[in-house]
Nucleic acid binder design. Sequence first.
DNA 1: AGAGTTGTGTACCGATCGGTACTGAAACCG
DNA 2: CGGTTTCAGTACCGATCGGTACACAACTCT
Lengths: 196, 196
Amino acid sequence: MSGTGRPRGFDADEALHAAMLVFWRQGYEGASLADLTAAMGITKTSMYAAFGNKEELFRKALARYDVGPASYGYRAVEQPTAREVAEAFLTGAVRTTTQPNCPAGCLGVQGSLAAGESGEPAREILVAWRNNGGRMLEERFRRAVEEGDLPEETDAGRLALYVMTVAFGIAVQAASGVSRADLQEVADTALLAWPA
Amino acid sequence: MSGTGRPRGFDADEALHAAMLVFWRQGYEGASLADLTAAMGITKTSMYAAFGNKEELFRKALARYDVGPASYGYRAVEQPTAREVAEAFLTGAVRTTTQPNCPAGCLGVQGSLAAGESGEPAREILVAWRNNGGRMLEERFRRAVEEGDLPEETDAGRLALYVMTVAFGIAVQAASGVSRADLQEVADTALLAWPA
DNA sequence: AGAGTTGTGTACCGATCGGTACTGAAACCG
DNA sequence: CGGTTTCAGTACCGATCGGTACACAACTCT
């Protein structure tokens, strides 16, 4: 064997970033291959060679979203106290879902909440992604209970579910066009329910 | 002129109900005319004659959803106190989004959060529908402030936005498969933030 | 240079998309 | 009965869907 072949003529990272934005703005089913490849600046053939197919492209775009716009979640759980974790998480959600020059809302929510048969795999990918976020928060809160940071009787799962629910609601409101300032007020209000 | 023509061979109300369920389960873009008419038990021709087109069918399905599964909102604002309004609203959201034999989640949320070009009208219809719910709640809370039911300094708009946000979050969680009992706990937790 | 390998562009695939023209069938009226 | 009106089914429309076959270009290796 010999020869490593022709190098690709585009930046795969940039192309994936562009695809992520299209999925974010239009959802999985609303983003056609024509929309995606036009934004990525490549042809369908190149997309299939580089990323597999539409579903794989979506999976990779979500992974990029996870470590990019959604990375506030990982930073949040590193806060020293559970209260600060929740504050950072909700503030991060507000900021990411209302970022200028980015689609309003959250890819992990509006990417595919309900779908027809062909969009079912993407929907399930997002269900798993959202549940994973809740699990991460729950484990962090459980640790906080063990450390005495949260009251002994605190239900970590319930608290995590609450914070995640508010974050998802914020994402929906952002998709409706609600402003960053208004959503930050919502986040502040939600924290009034914090256990004593 | 004479003759009133052949009567339609199907129940338009039943057909609309079936269409509503398909939109609810699959979203606007995920619901094809083939899916819709199969569920409605009629042909495309009959659907167009009776309802106009897909977008009009969606509009009418949403109207039916509004006075059916989503009617808890109207009942909620009739509660005697603002606190009871919020309780009824959130409990109603929990119950409707987790109703057995119905799609999980809320048609007004997952019907179309993000969409491609062809789904933009439906998306805007839902944005308006959601904003309308918030306005209704806000007016009710404003009245509660005037009546002395809520503290004088209460920001009715902010409170309404908060309650709506939690309700939307509940809808997202329900679409992910979270149980009714867990979501009722979320609703209860959210109400801990209620103004003194 | 030549062989081997891989990316790219075109042109195309069958299937499905939302929507409609047309033909009868089924009802009402007189 | 005939005449009129409306609904229903078939068959079809152009456009777009996600995906691919194929020829060729561009690179590395010997």
